[in-house]
Amino acid sequence: MAGTACFIIVSRNNIPIYEAEVGSALKKEDAAHQHHFILHAALDIVQDLAWTTSAMFLKGADKFDGLVVSVYVTAGHTRLMLLHDSRNDDGIKSFFQEVHELYIKVYHCLCFSVMQSFPSSIRFGMGLALFRKIWMLILCSDSNYSCLVILLFPFREF
C-alpha cells in the first residue's frame, strides 16, 4: 500500500485496541499523531453511518486534507479504521476482510480458552443449546474481551 496509511482497531466502547502505521512510505513523518486525531474525529460520522447501511465496509466515510478514512464495522460494532491517501477500494476492502478473519480467529482462541476454564463436569453436562447460547453471548460482547485479546495475542506480528 503506497503513501500514508494509519490503521486502528477501535472497540465497541470507542477505545483503540490496536494501532499501526502501515504503508511503504510516510509522506510527512511529523503528521503521525495528526492521523490519530483525524481517525478519532471520524468516529462521529462512522457511528451515524454504520446504522444507515447493512454493508460492513464503509469506503470514504470521512475525509480530511486529502486523506480518506475507510472503515469496516464488525457485527459486534468493533471498527477497523484505515486512514489512507491512495484510492484502492478493492485492496482496502480485502485488507479489512483479512484483518477481520484474523481478528475472529484470535478472538475465538480466547473464547475457547475461556470455555476451557469451566470445570469439565459443567462443560460436558451442559446441553448443546446452552453451550451455543454462552458462545453467542461471548461473541456479541467481543469488546469486553478485546483488550485481553491484544494483551494475549500481539497483533503486531501478523
Binding site: N13, N14, I15, P16, E19, H33, H36, F37, H40
Partner: peptide, 13 residues
C-alpha cells in the same frame, strides 16, 4: 473526552 475514550496517544499530547 480522550481520557474517557482511552485514546492514549491523544491524551498524552
Amino acid at each position: 473526552l480522550y481520557r474517557q475514550e482511552g485514546w492514549v496517544t491523544l491524551l498524552w499530547e
